[in-house]
Design a protein around this nucleic acid. Structure first.
Lengths: 349, 349
DNA sequence: TTGTACGCGTTATCAT
DNA sequence: ATGATAACGCGTACAA
């Protein structure tokens, strides 16, 4: 596909295909290729005269450096891998957007691969990224063992969102899920609710555990005993939320409020309640978590805990760029915040 | 970053870093690098004995070919670029998932870049992809001129979703938006509705135009005149749908049904109606388009036109793979289908 | 400050 | 069928 039929010795002045190489730029500018490279990368000081000549040549030829060649030669691909769980999820979607936007500003490109909530897939995803020689890896939650991530960080900067890990090339940060869940639960308690059902996420994940802890915290602080019958575990999906309502009702666990630990489950739960002729918020107050766009447009608009997923994506990317630059990243995440909409109301008696 | 301090002449038996190269595999298997390459790519016939030896060596060393080097040498990167509009959109999210899954099966990796509904961004996105030497480009809708896409297809296979284009290396297919919209409108007409409002998408895009045409078609077929006052143009977002309701109401355009040309706008419209104390479906029947997951969980569950966005993604990827293989792709898209849920009802009088 | 020469890991061409 | 060898486009240690 390459290697032209006629192995011309030396004459890259113009090529049959439209590809413009650094070498051509050098030739046109009357300098050596290395000089062009230096100017491109700011690797060393170059006289202004040559700088101008090269810039002019680049313009004239419309030269664009080839990242593939750069990757081979320099060991950098200007790409960072992102391990997400399901690219189609509204939650991850927003995070990915933040990552993409932020990376772009620095000339980096994200490589998204899905872990599908499956440890093996995740491992495979990371393998793919490594073999693609990404310059760094951002991991969003996930099932893979901490130790494995740490090991990956031996050879690459790694940013992990939603865990507590650290190392020379490993940076992680979490949203304060516990505080957020506490906020949500407190709100319901303040509204007079005493029997508050809780739909947990997959407790394999820290954030799900933390949200549950926040729920428990608030009860403890208010001196309200927790009825285990009011807690069901689910999977952060709409279908899961809906199913959870059924399970709760089958248990005959009476409740006047429901805290679903993410918006998707809350939406699903809302439909589930509706099917049983329970109205939100008249019969049951409902709170979600995440403040996805859907929360604003659900019926009724959902009270939820605001966590700017987009912002989290931006922060992750920023941290990665900082590590790539050789610096120490720090994450500045906004505090959790309760957004009161119309799915909750003071308990009627 | 590379070029070791000691430019050892020839001894790649083991390297300081964990990187395993094709050369090492060759050495261990007692064959030449070319032979290993041939086995990897099936480029030429190789004796079974050597095949086995090489496979064994690959296993033992845990060798993974370097796509970057492959890209430089072979001109293929085993990656295909995908121009999407907003990666975070629930609509595009599903399509991307389909693309990813399908490409993965063939060892390809998608490179997602956002066009942000902006012609310049889109052009830039394509530039990025080209410079990254992707093997092909999939374009989802978008603003960029047909001519530009055609030009891109001179050097690369291109698959375009949502337009009618063709060329030697250019393949496009569309969902039958017009038929789908006709279906939706017919449904409302059959329910006795005569004043059906319509929220169009951005008419810069074919699919939006087609959906509007379907709406008009159905009216024509039923001999119902169309009141231009019942049509507003919007932007496929929830916020846009909500705003459209306001505009419709301000016009004093009385209507008993509303067809929003995508689910997101329908959801927004639903909230907008609610704000004005109009109930769905009691006061206004509502139909969406796309059948995103949110349609199933909205309140009330939304009647909509099913178009499997995931499936579209899969089809696009399949077509791309076929072109990459040198074949002629064909798209087999399912017919539009109306999914009747609970947001529509026979008009009461 | 600048140029030369080599290497990055693989594929493809040309002999054998 | 198999092995040398030369690219692919760029970065960089080294020499100048």
């Amino acid at each position: 596909m390459n290697a032209k039929p006629t192995p011309a010795k030396k004459a890259p002045s113009t090529r049959p295909d439209g590809v413009v190489t650094l070498e051509q730029v050098a030739e046109l500018a009357g300098v050596s290729p290395s000089t062009v490279s230096r100017i491109l990368n700011g690797t060393a000081a170059v006289s202004q005269a040559k700088k101008d000549a090269v810039q002019a040549a680049i313009q004239e030829l419309g030269f664009r450096p080839n990242p593939v060649a750069r990757g081979l030669a320099g060991g950098r691909t200007l790409s960072v891998g992102v391990v997400t769980q399901i690219i189609s999820s509204p939650f991850y979607g927003e995070a990915l957007l933040g990552i993409e936007r932020e990376l772009e500003r620095a000339g980096y490109v994200p490589l998204f691969v899905s872990g599908n909530w499956h440890e093996d897939d995740e491992r495979e995803a990371i393998e793919t990224l490594l073999s693609r020689r990404v310059d760094g890896v951002i991991v969003l939650a996930g099932r893979i063992a901490d130790a494995e991530l740490t090991k990956v960080s031996d050879s690459l900067p790694v940013v992990v969102v939603g865990r507590q890990l650290s190392g020379p090339q490993l940076f992680s940060f979490s949203f304060d899920n516990r505080a957020g869940a506490r906020l949500a639960t407190q709100h319901l308690i303040e509204q007079g609710h005493r029997r508050i059902a809780f739909i947990a996420g997959d407790l394999m994940h820290d954030d799900a555990v933390e949200r549950q802890n926040g729920y428990l915290d608030a009860h403890a602080a208010a001196g309200i005993p927790v009825d285990q019958n009011l807690i069901v575990q689910s999977d952060y999906t709409e279908a899961g939320g809906m199913l959870s309502v059924t399970r709760l009702l089958e248990r005959d666990a009476h409740f006047t409020a429901l805290f679903a630990s993410n918006d998707q489950m809350a939406i699903g739960a809302c439909l589930g309640l509706h099917r049983r002729n329970l109205r939100v918020p008249d019969d049951v107050s409902l709170v979600g978590f995440d403040d996805l766009i859907m929360a604003r447009y659900s019926m009724p608009p959902l009270t939820t805990v605001r966590q700017s997923v987009y912002e989290i994506g931006v922060e992750a990317a920023t941290a990665m760029l900082e590590m790539l630059r050789g610096g120490k990243p720090r994450a500045q995440l906004p505090e959790p915040e309760l957004v009161v909409r119309e799915s909750t109301r003071r308990m009627q008696r």
